[in-house]
Design a protein around this nucleic acid. Structure first.
Length: 598
DNA sequence: TGGAGGTACC
């Protein structure tokens, strides 16, 4: 009779707890737990595990841990429930420590008892644990766990495999990730999405897109996470037509309005140059997270629309329950800078410094201030600001100041900063180019030569410049002095024609942009071979008159190409929208939205 | 008890 009573008690508690888990009803669940204690009921292992799940579900990791610690015996499910909670909330070292504790307890039991299955990790444990292998030591740990997985024969389990390939991809080891993926005996939408997103997150956008297409051909049914991942790749490629096509798929599939997917769409449209679509999606969202606001703010920022940034930020503070985070402030500060609203940006930064927003300025925010001061021509002040920072200045910070020195022709500071930068980042060719630009603008040709010699001494490997244009869902890519495009003859003839016409209108090639030791004629030839000029020329011949030309470049646009594009927009009456590594340049009738500062 | 996902200075 007593046994039946206990069983009924168990059933009752179990049902009640599950309801509380589903509804995340903390108080109610706590009362259920209290009732067990008050009535001296000793819950069996299974029920205690539900308590762990319940507390974790209500964000009460400490309470959950107490339940685990007080358990007279534990099985793999109770251990794994707690490891999972730590992993999900980002407590990686706690997750790993608990796993080790579990693992050691398993070994201990192994030595004293034949029945050790209770604490032997299973596929659930490994799949969840691998998500905690991030950061600096993540790869080492991940590899060690991988060897445990192989020894226990879990490698081809689909969840373990997905988690494993994701771990490698997040550590930048895409080949190893792909190896795990290729060896999976079966695939599902999660493992496929993990590998696609792995490529996209490493900036291997074309590979991500190609794999997405291949897996679709092979029958993968995408879900909203797959679409979000491929949209990230399309944002990187600025592939508007392809992005629209994915958007249409999403609409046809009638996927519910997942915030994550809508955020990806906002980002994709803005990075593909279509801000009004981004805003339309943003306005139609039933709920927004801080990432939705940030994506929209970043969009306006990259397009140099400072006023819109300020307006939207105000709206966010007034009307939204979402609190700005450190990324919001990065977007707002860089938006003010890109939009030529230096004073406003500085005001925001001082507010941050005073602690008015609850967000401490980080190194990146200081970087924005250097940019703001530099753009405003306050180069000395920017230099003093860097010296007073309580962060060690990074190459990005010095790079920002060097850019300001170039635009405002401040040779003294520029020279100091330039050489400082060459010490920190001797392999970055861009730094030599800007320093050389600076000397060239002052007519210091001897110094231009010194910089050039330094560059050849240090054997700089320059990331090859690459520009592309999307036409009818096809990306046409050009490399510097590229002769590989099927329409290369036409393109090169068009560049020559442009050069002649532009020179008549006053174009003077900026030879300081070339760091090769060749004669001026050769330098001019090199400049005309820059990838963005090839893409621009191709855009002019491949699209109808009057149609805006959209070019995307993997690096920052050079001074000469910027001048060139401005003149093209004026003479050929074409709007040119050029996205470089940092921002958009919207050029209309010879005037660029960047105000010639970038 | 479980695996994938959106924003970020230069």
């Amino acid at each position: 009779m007593a046994a039946i009573g206990l069983e009924m008690k168990f059933d009752g508690y179990y049902t009640l707890l599950n309801e509380c888990i589903n509804r995340r009803a903390f108080r109610e669940g706590q009362r259920v737990h209290a009732h067990m204690i008050k009535t001296c009921y000793l819950p069996p292992m299974h029920l205690r595990t539900r308590l762990i799940v319940f507390y974790n579900n209500c964000d009460r990791l400490g309470d959950a841990r107490r339940v685990l610690d007080e358990m007279p015996e534990r099985n793999v499910v109770s251990w794994t429930a707690m490891v999972s909670a730590y992993s999900k909330r980002g407590y990686a070292s706690e997750a790993l420590n608990l796993f080790l504790q579990m693992f050691r307890s398993g070994l201990l039991v192994l030595t004293i008892s034949a029945n050790f299955a209770g604490t032997e990790p299973n596929e659930f444990t490994f799949a969840t644990l691998l998500t905690s292998c991030t950061g600096a030591s993540g790869l080492d740990l991940g590899r060690q766990i991988h060897s445990l997985i192989i020894r226990r024969n879990f490698e081809s389990h689909i969840f373990v495999g997905s988690s494993l390939l994701d771990m490698y991809a997040k550590a930048g080891r895409i080949y190893e990730a792909r190896g795990v993926f290729n060896c999976l005996p079966e695939r599902d939408v999660v493992s496929c999405t993990a590998i696609i997103s792995g490529y996209a997150q490493l900036g291997l956008d074309e590979e991500a897109l190609e794999l997405f297409r291949q897996l679709q051909r092979e029958g993968m049914i995408s879900n909203y996470v797959t679409y979000a991942s491929v949209l990230t790749a399309l944002s990187g490629l600025a592939a508007l037509d392809l992005g629209r096509q994915v958007h249409n798929h999403v609409l046809r599939r009638e996927l519910p309005s997942y915030v994550v997917l809508l955020n990806s769409l906002i980002d994709m449209y803005s990075k593909c140059g279509n801000l009004s679509y981004s805003r339309r999606i943003f306005d139609s969202m039933p709920e927004r997270t801080v990432i939705s606001w940030n994506a929209m703010l970043v969009g306006y920022s990259k397009h140099g629309m400072g006023k819109e940034v300020v307006k939207l930020f105000k709206l966010m503070k007034e009307e939204s329950k979402v609190r700005p985070d450190s990324v919001t402030f990065l977007a707002v500060l860089s938006g003010c800078s890109h939009g030529g609203m230096e004073d406003r940006g500085l005001e925001y930064f001082y507010e941050m410094e005073k602690g008015e927003n609850g967000i401490e300025p980080e190194l990146e925010h200081y970087g924005c201030v250097v940019d703001l001061l530099g753009r405003a021509g306050r180069v000395e002040e920017a230099f003093e600001f860097i010296k007073k920072m309580h962060f060690e200045p990074t190459a990005a910070i010095w790079g920002s100041l060097l850019g300001a020195c170039r635009v405002h022709s401040n040779i003294d500071i520029g020279e100091f900063v330039g050489f400082r930068l060459l010490q920190i980042e001797p392999e970055n060719a861009g730094n030599y180019v800007i320093l050389s630009n600076l000397y060239a603008s002052a007519g210091r040709w001897e110094d231009v030569r010194t910089v050039r010699e330094l560059m050849s001494e240090k054997a700089v490997i320059k990331e090859p410049g690459r520009s592309w244009i999307e036409l009818d869902q096809i990306l046409h890519t050009f490399h510097a002095s590229d002769r590989s495009h099927p329409r290369r003859e036409e393109v090169s003839a068009k560049v020559k024609e442009l050069s002649i016409k532009l020179k008549e209108a006053g174009y003077v090639p900026d030879l300081g942009c070339v760091l090769y030791d060749v004669d001026d004629e050769q330098k001019e030839k090199i400049l005309l071979g820059h990838s963005e000029k090839l893409a621009l020329a191709f855009g002019l011949i491949a699209t109808a008159e009057g149609v805006p030309v959209r070019v995307t470049k993997n690096l920052r646009i050079c001074v000469d190409c910027h001048n060139f594009a401005k003149l093209v927009s004026e003479i050929y009456r074409r709007e040119v929208s050029l996205r470089d590594k940092n921002r958009f340049h919207h050029i209309v009738r010879g005037i660029c939205s960047c105000g010639d500062y970038w």
